[in-house]
């Protein structure tokens, strides 16, 4: 089985990299880009039957820093 983990900055945490990406898009001539927030995508290859709680624990213990980041898990 596969788990897809999306790690994003919490709302309210400034994202200077996102802002730089926004400016770069504007410089390339793309109009209407009103905001950019960047994050991480992590794909885990897991033994079948790995419990969801165990994946959440992986996120809390290592994949995300919950002081600044939220995570979302999709199991496929």
């Amino acid at each position: 089985m596969k788990a897809r983990v999306y790690v994003t900055l919490k709302p309210g945490v400034l994202d200077p990299q996102g802002r730089a990406i926004q400016h770069a898009l504007e410089n390339l001539g793309f109009g209407g880009v009103e905001g950019v927030r960047q994050g991480k995508f992590i794909e885990l290859e897991l033994a079948d039957g790995t419990p969801r709680e165990s994946i959440d624990e992986m996120c809390r213990k290592l994949l995300a820093n919950t002081v600044i980041e939220n995570f979302k898990v999709e199991v496929a």
């Binding site: 945490v13 200077p16 990299q17 820093n65 002081v67």
Partner: peptide
């Protein structure tokens, strides 16, 4: 130390990048 939970907070990318 912050990642280990011995100190609060986090150190993020410098504001000026």
């Amino acid at each position: 130390l912050t990642e280990a939970g011995l100190l609060p907070g986090a150190l993020m990318r410098n504001a000026g990048l």
